[in-house]
Amino acid sequence: MIDKNNLFANNLVQRHRTAKIFAYCCAIVTWAGAALLIALIYQICADGIKWLDAQFLTSFPSRFYYKAGIKSALVGTVYLISLVALIAIPVGVAAAIYLEEFFPPGRINKLVELNIANLAGVPSIVYGIIGLAIFVRGAELGRSLISGALTMSLLILPVIIVASREAIKTVPLSTRQAAFALGATRWQTALAHVLPAAFPGILTGIILALSRAIGETAPLIMIGALTYVAFLPEGPMDTFTALPIQIYNWVSRPQQEFHELAAGAIIVLLAVLLLMNASAIFIRYKAEQKP
């Protein structure tokens, strides 16, 4: 049966067909996801775009829909995210550097890595409970901006650490060896060569983490961010509200107009998110240009 002179079965047609089927499947899945997203954004814009004006951005919330705005929520979100970035980025990147460059690899390191990866998957409400127990009650920080920021930082730290570690791992060993062979310490090597080379990857992780933080609602509800705030927070110890809370509050009201206001707030939230990511991508682009 088998031709001893030709032991390779000529099934090229079948192999090409399989490849084509697989490519079609991937295309369908990809475009289905994109279509769903576009439909969602279209729906929100159709509902909310008519409420977007200066008055909407500069008014405090109100029980009259025609007077209601998102001033305190928008400012609260900007403050919150800035504080989270200030806390979570240095801590997360430092932890990643320590675990990759200083902590000896081995079983304990693997265990730590596994635990951090697991923490990244813990539901956000759990972080809210931790924040309530530790920051609001334990440290007696109250229902303040700083409590919210610390809780959010806990939530996104695992994401930043995991992403930063992955980025640091991609820096070739030969670069480190070159630095060590010149009489550099581990810290000098990490600062001068590992961090700059890993920077684009770290930044990507930070973008993902902050994007998650900006949209999280559950932990903020848990630690008691207020739903009606008619003033701007003046310091980190002030009470605050944030866009997701305002959206949550508006969609839970019966009136159609408040649902549309919520859609408007969602558009603003998306815009803030896009702005944040765009600036991060710009920074990354600039960093990659540098010789």
Binding site: S174, T175, A178, F180, A181, L182, P291
Partner: peptide
Amino acid sequence: RRRIGMVFQKPNPFPK
């Protein structure tokens, strides 16, 4: 290492 320098198998200049 500062007194005993090393050149490696593959050229490994810093990306600078």
